[in-house]
Amino acid sequence: SADGDDLVDLLDLGYGSCKLVLAAPEDGDVAAVEDLAGRTVATEFPNVTRDYLDRVGVDADVVTVTGATELTPHVDMADAIVDITSTGTTLKVNRLAVIDDVLDSSVRLFARPDVVDDPKVEQVLTAFESVLAADGRRYLMMNAPKDRLDDVKDVIPGLGGPTVMDVEADENGNGMVAVHAVVDERDVFETISELRSVGATGILVTEIERLVE
């Protein structure tokens, strides 16, 4: 096994984000971390809290609790708390104000230093990266008149530009091209409208399972 300090942080997986914060009663006299000197902090994370207090140079007592941390200042168990928050709702409900951020947290992929370059680890990393890269993107396919291709490219620059392939001419003998591109899903409907205005037809939108950039 490897100590946490020795692990290599490979990738933030983009979910489970939260913060560990120092908070105190809104109507109390703790407005800054320095105000906690000689006082008590309640937390479910005593080691992290002690490291934080050492880092900021404040000597305070740390009390370990196993739940309902946000209630401890209101029952005279502590002057402040260190606890996890994602939306801040629980803190607000309990009339607690954030004094300082202790650390940010999210789900991440780590590896031991001695296996970082292992092909299997690289495969796992690529698999995760490809899913994250595809998130929020859509794949567009369409036909467009060849003489309007520049207009189409102006609408969908894509990843390094759209992919363009010649196809059979339409019933009027006009040259046509098939155009494929990756776009942001937030722009899909606006993009489709603009593409139709420059002559694109048969527009197909699909989800992307993985995208290796």
Rank of each mutant, 00 (worst) to 15 (best):
D12E: 06
L13F: 00
G14Y: 02
Y15H: 14
C18P: 00
C18W: 13
V21L: 00
L22K: 01
L22G: 03
A23N: 04
A24D: 11
E26S: 09
E26Y: 03
D27G: 04
G28K: 06
G28M: 04
V30M: 06
A32N: 12
A32P: 05
V33G: 08
V33E: 12
V33M: 11
V33L: 11
E34G: 14
D35T: 06
L36E: 03
L36C: 03
L36R: 01
L36N: 01
A37C: 05
A37Q: 13
R39Q: 09
R39V: 08
V41W: 06
A42M: 05
T43V: 05
N47A: 15
N47M: 13
N47E: 15
T49N: 06
R50P: 04
R55W: 13
V56M: 13
D59K: 12
A60M: 11
D61C: 09
V62Y: 10
V62A: 06
V62T: 08
T64Q: 15
T66N: 15
G67M: 09
A68Y: 14
A68V: 10
A68N: 15
T69E: 07
T69Y: 04
E70L: 13
H74K: 12
D76I: 01
D76E: 12
I81L: 04
I84Y: 15
I84D: 11
S86Y: 09
T87I: 05
G88F: 06
G88I: 12
T89N: 14
T90Y: 07
T90F: 06
L91E: 10
K92M: 14
V93F: 08
V93S: 12
N94A: 09
N94R: 10
N94G: 04
R95Y: 08
R95P: 03
A97S: 14
A97V: 12
D101W: 04
L103M: 14
L103P: 04
D104Q: 12
S105R: 14
S105D: 10
S105L: 15
R108K: 15
R108H: 08
R108S: 10
L109K: 01
L109Y: 02
A111K: 00
P113T: 03
D114C: 03
V115G: 02
D118K: 00
D118M: 03
P119V: 00
V121M: 05
E122G: 11
Q123F: 02
Q123T: 07
V124K: 03
V124Y: 03
L125V: 08
F128G: 00
E129M: 00
E129N: 01
L132F: 03
